[in-house]
Each structure stands twice: as C-alpha cells, then as structure tokens.
Design a protein around this nucleic acid. Structure first.
Lengths: 155, 155
DNA sequence: TTCGCTGCAAATCCTTTGCATGATT
DNA sequence: AATCATGCAAAGGATTTGCAGCGAA
C-alpha cells in the first residue's frame, strides 16, 4: 500500500534529506493503520526503536508528511488531533470516513458507496466547487449498542 | 428561533443561576448565526455591552451551553475552535453542514436533502447505530472559484 | 444568607520555534 | 564541505483552574 520508497523519492525531489527519524515515523503510521494515532502516541512508538527521538521532530515530520500528502489529520473534538496514513484523494489508502462511538470512543473507518455522491447535496445556487469532503458519524458501535440494550441504560 | 427563556428554564432546572453574562453570551451567539464565532470573538462581542466580562467566563459558559445542547462546536482545523447556535438534532436551528473555502476560508452553512440519508452509507455489517453526523465540504466558493479561473492560478 | 458564579492570574496542555550540534548528500 | 535536520529548552497560544470576592435565589 505505502512504502518508504515513495517518501524517499518525494524528499529527494524537494532537496530534503532522508533521515532515520522520518522513515521511522512513516513506518509507525503505516503499521498503525486505522489506529488514529496522536502525536504523543507516535512519539512513544518511535521511541521504542529509536530512544533519542525528540517530540519536536515528530511534530515537524508530521507537518512534512501532511504537506507531502502521505498522511491525514483527523480531529474528533475529543481534545486530541490524530493522524493516519493515506491521502484525502484516496491515492494512497482509501478515501474513507469515520464512525465514532460515543460510549467507548472507538474510531472505525468505513468506505461507503453513497458517500461519493455527496457533492450533489450542495444546492447548485451556492456555486461551490467541491474539492474534498469529510464525514464523521457519531453513535454506538455494535459492542456498546448491544451492551446498552442489555443494561437498559442508553445515555 | 431561540430565546433566552429556554436558557433560563434549563438553568433553573439544574439549580444553576441565570446571570447577565450567560444571557449575553447566548445572545451574541444567537445574533451571530452562521458567523461561526471563536471564543475570543465571543469575548470581544460581549465586552461591547459588558466590559467587565472575563475570558474565563466565556469559556465556562461555552462549556455550559454545549452541555445544555444550545450550541455546537465546529472545528475546521484552521487553529480555531468555533461555536454556533443550534443543537445537532436540529431542534433549535437546522441540522446543517459546512462548506469551507480553501482560498478565502469563508464558512457557509447549507442544508442538503440527501445528507439526511447518510446513515445508510454505513455498511450493515458494522452494526453501527448512527446517532448523529457531521459533514464538511472543502473547495472553492463561487467568488474564489471565479477569481481563480480568471487569474488562472488555481492552487 | 447561601451557594453558585465571576474576574483575575497562574497553571496546564499541546504545539511551535531558536539555536547549537549532528547527520545526510 | 555544505546544508539540512535534530534535540533540547524556551516560547507561544488556547483553554482550564484556584481562589477570594460578588451576586442571584
């Protein structure tokens, strides 16, 4: 799906350097597909194999990877900004959306067919040129939904 | 659409107090419908009529109004968290979504018909109980779209 | 009078930045 | 050797919190 070679190529094209830190951070994100990692989590994971890494480098690299369109930013309004591998256009990974469980806070990605027609929802009168979109669905995951019904204490 | 009486009733029910500050903040948000105000902007607007207000009070009241479901939080990943009157269910105001212009950063709300069917996009196998959703469309507003074509320098 | 609320300032959290050192090309 | 990147620590910005005084019930 994604390999380090693409990163290396992209960096070289821009006259930037291929460093251990950059490669490791991308790998952590690639391995943590659908894990929706925060900067701090990425930092901790990279630290395992490279204890000298600094948090600032993680932030700087995240910024770089976003610009290179190798990762996406996800904001669930839970106080944490998260990142995942893939670009919005779906060239790398899939252009997917997120289900967020209001109870256990679990985040699940999904790929819905109808979602692709979303641009049509915008009234023509707005004359808005849709380029990209983001959908978040809030509710209860299968586990919490079942549990709630049994306990009969749905929030 | 929304009046202070609802706030007063809700506060009293919870044994909380009706203060000038709380009423003013709600009014600013109600008057600024579709303005998508930040905490700082709300602070400045309330200050006009009540110079002694503190920023901390604004934050505490925003928190309260969110809990009372009188306002919504909007996060556009532009570094500012914004608020607008209305609840997600559309009881107050409309359950609408946002068009975000990538060029001029203008935020426009819209109400699309098809959007209401979005729950159907989730594959049944997920067994996810959709409760609420949020859609953001990024692109170019009519003004910027036209301008870009003329200038022929679309980002 | 009571208890919650406010303003202020300090504290906190996440993220960014300046700078000297270190690594990559 | 020339740059760019890194780690550290300090700075920054938004938001939260502790506390004494104030105000609504």
């Amino acid at each position: 799906m994604i390999d380090t070679d693409y990163l290396k190529k992209a960096l070289k094209e821009k006259g930037l350097k291929v460093t251990k830190q950059r490669v490791l951070i991308l790998q952590v994100l690639a391995n943590g597909f659908d894990k929706h990692l925060t900067a701090e989590e990425i930092y901790q994971l990279v630290k395992v194999g490279y204890p000298d890494i600094g948090l600032a480098t993680v932030y700087r690299t995240i910024q770089l990877l976003l610009e290179l369109n190798l990762i996406n930013r996800i904001n669930l309004d839970d106080g944490y900004v998260r990142y995942e591998i893939g670009d919005k256009k779906g060239t790398i990974g899939q252009h997917h959306h997120h289900l967020i469980c209001l109870k256990c806070k679990k985040i699940t990605s999904f790929e819905g067919e109808l979602v692709n027609n979303i641009g049509r929802c915008v009234p023509v009168s707005y004359n808005f040129e849709v380029n990209d979109y983001e959908v978040k669905l809030y509710g209860y995951c299968s586990e919490c939904s079942t549990k709630s019904k049994l306990e009969n204490n749905v929030p």
